[in-house]
C-alpha cells in the first residue's frame, strides 16, 4: 500500500522536451480555472472538505490548491497515467456518491460529504487517491510561491517556516 502511494506520486516521469518553456521567466505553473466547471468544481469543493473545521480552511485562497492542481495537469514531469488517475478519482467519487446517496458529490450536504470521504478512505483506491490529492495540496501550501500557491508565504507562516535561500527564480529549473 505504502509503496503504491509512493509509486503513484513519484512516477512523474514524462519527458516532453519542453524544459525551455518551463524555464522561461514568464511561465506560470498554477493556471486560471473556472470552479464552475468540472473537474475543478469538485476539486475545489474537495479541497474545502479536506480542511473543514481547521484553520487551514481560512488560508485556502492563499494556498490556491485548485489552480495549482491545474498546473499539475500540465507538468511534464508527471505522467499522463498519474494525471488521469487524479481525474478518474473524481468520476469514482461521484459514482460512489450516486450509489450511496443518489446524488453527485457536490449536491450532498456537508456531513454527507464527510461521511463519503470516510467511506472511500477505507477503500484502497480512495485512500490512494486522497493521498495524492493531499500531496499536491501540500505542494501548493508549502512549495515556493513561484509555483502559484503559498501566496505571500501564508502556508509557511502558518507553520512558522522560513524558506531556504536562494529561492527559485524559475519553476522546475534544471539548467
Amino acid at each position: 500500500m505504502k509503496s503504491s502511494r509512493r509509486l503513484f506520486l513519484k512516477s512523474s516521469a514524462v519527458f516532453i522536451g519542453t524544459f525551455s518553456l518551463l524555464a522561461d521567466d514568464s511561465f506560470e505553473y498554477a493556471k486560471k480555472i473556472s470552479i464552475y466547471k468540472e473537474p475543478y468544481q469538485t476539486f475545489a469543493l474537495l479541497h474545502k472538505d479536506l480542511f473543514v473545521n481547521s484553520n487551514i480552511y481560512n488560508l485556502l485562497n492563499s494556498i490556491n490548491p485548485t489552480s495549482y492542481l491545474a498546473g499539475v495537469f500540465e507538468d511534464p514531469y508527471i505522467t499522463q497515467d498519474d494525471k488521469d488517475y487524479l481525474k478518474n478519482g473524481i468520476t469514482w467519487l461521484h459514482e460512489t456518491s450516486d450509489e450511496l446517496y443518489k446524488k453527485r458529490y457536490y449536491n450532498l450536504k456537508t456531513y454527507e460529504r464527510q461521511q463519503l470521504l470516510h467511506k472511500i478512505s477505507e477503500q484502497e483506491w480512495g485512500d490512494s487517491w486522497l493521498w495524492s490529492i493531499m500531496s499536491y495540496f501540500f505542494e501548493a501550501m508549502l512549495g515556493d510561491s513561484i509555483y502559484g500557491g503559498n501566496i505571500d508565504a501564508k502556508g509557511w507562516q502558518y507553520l512558522d517556516l522560513v524558506s531556504g535561500y536562494p529561492r527559485p527564480k524559475k519553476v522546475l529549473y534544471n539548467g
Partner: peptide
C-alpha cells in the same frame, strides 16, 4: 547561481536525475 532551495523541483520532481521513462 543555478541552484536554489526549490523542494518541488529538487525533491518532488527530481529534476537532477533522468526521467525513468527515458
Amino acid at each position: 547561481s543555478d541552484f536554489s532551495k526549490d523542494e518541488i523541483a529538487v525533491s518532488r520532481r527530481a529534476v537532477y536525475t533522468p526521467l525513468l521513462k527515458d
